[in-house]
Simulated assay, not measured.
Amino acid sequence: MLFVIVSGLSGSGKSTALRTLEDAGFFITDNLPPELWGAMYDLVRASNIEKVAVSTDSRTREFLAALESSYVRLSRRYDNVRVLFLEANAEVLLGRYNLSRREHPLGETLMVDFARERELLAPLRAIADTVIDTTSLSAKQLSERVLQVFRLEQSFTLRLMSFGFKHSPPRDADLVLDVRSLPNPYYDPALRSKSGRQSDVAAYVFRDPEAEKFYEEVRDFVQTAATRARQSGRHSYTVAIGCTGGQHRSVAVTERLSRELTDLSVEVVDHRDMREVTGEREGAPV
């Protein structure tokens, strides 16, 4: 198990660091007093949780006198405890606070608060395994540094779903694509009651060179959009593929995309409007 203690100055990026670790699969507890570190370690170990991060900062100032003793007890018992400390210069912290209009946890004038906070947290900074100065870092750059420190990979999932426009497009998709220009198996009586998951239906949808070219353009566009989303720091991206009823063309395209976009972690979320066994429905093309 990896047990990470995240601390640092208010406004230095602790929330960003914690979100990054949470997205990487860590169990997160924010604002945990040092005297509870050992109890938290034992609790999560008993629950077979492999990655844990706890945050301690000046909000727990009533308990900070126990910082060093709590760390010593924990590190003597276990050798997998890491301390990550974040800081930035006072001018940058002041700018971040003025932008957010938050009140500092110590509640005096900001420049005095920054100095007092550095003093309060000095023992934890002294024992930190890693200190990151976020003065010149963006949130994205900080996330990348945190991932590097703990040798983590940023998770990214491309979520695909099919739907029928006659049932309205999904509201939670990042990208909606229309494949109604592809050949429609609905007009073949032998295929009408089947779904786009079946090979003969897929063969019909992609049967001619123009259909194949259209599909390839869709595939390349989805690849580009998902890659850009991942590069921008997104952890997931949802693409909805629509035909008229959500039974044939959109399903066939979604299934084929899931097989061919091999350099992305692809998850088929749902074939929202597909019926596994159907007859004719409302006499409308699907």
Rank of each mutant, 00 (worst) to 15 (best):
L43T: 12
F165H: 09
F165W: 06
A122L: 05
S12I: 10
R281N: 14
Q223M: 09
V131T: 11
V112W: 03
I132T: 11
D273T: 14
S236F: 13
R275E: 12
R249K: 03
S47G: 10
V205G: 03
L158S: 09
R234K: 12
R96K: 06
A190M: 04
A284Q: 09
L177G: 06
K140F: 14
V239A: 11
D30P: 03
L67P: 00
R45K: 09
A240E: 08
R234A: 12
S58P: 01
L264D: 08
S258K: 07
S232V: 01
E22K: 13
P189G: 14
S75C: 07
P33Y: 07
A211E: 00
A90S: 12
N31I: 00
G95S: 13
V112S: 15
N31Q: 14
E117L: 04
V253K: 00
F114K: 13
V176W: 00
F214V: 01
A128M: 02
P123H: 05
L9P: 01
A46H: 11
S100H: 10
L94S: 14
E260D: 10
G164C: 05
K140P: 02
L93W: 02
R197V: 03
L264P: 03
C243Q: 07
F165A: 08
E280T: 10
E210Y: 03
Y215I: 10
N98W: 08
L182Y: 02
P285A: 10
E267V: 09
E117R: 08
E153S: 07
E119C: 04
L264Q: 10
S181K: 10
T109M: 02
E210T: 15
R151C: 07
I127W: 04
V54R: 08
N80S: 15
R249C: 00
I28F: 01
Y237G: 07
L9G: 13
A284C: 06
M1I: 09
A139V: 11
L18K: 08
V44F: 09
L106C: 05
V286S: 10
R281V: 12
V83C: 03
K166Y: 06
P185C: 07
E144K: 14
L257A: 14
R82E: 11
L160C: 08
T16L: 00
T224F: 08
F150M: 06
R151D: 13
P183C: 08
G283P: 04
A252R: 00
I241C: 03
L2C: 09
S181W: 09
S250P: 00
D23W: 05
V44S: 02
L160M: 07
I132M: 02
L120K: 05
R180I: 02
P169D: 13
T130P: 00
Y97F: 13
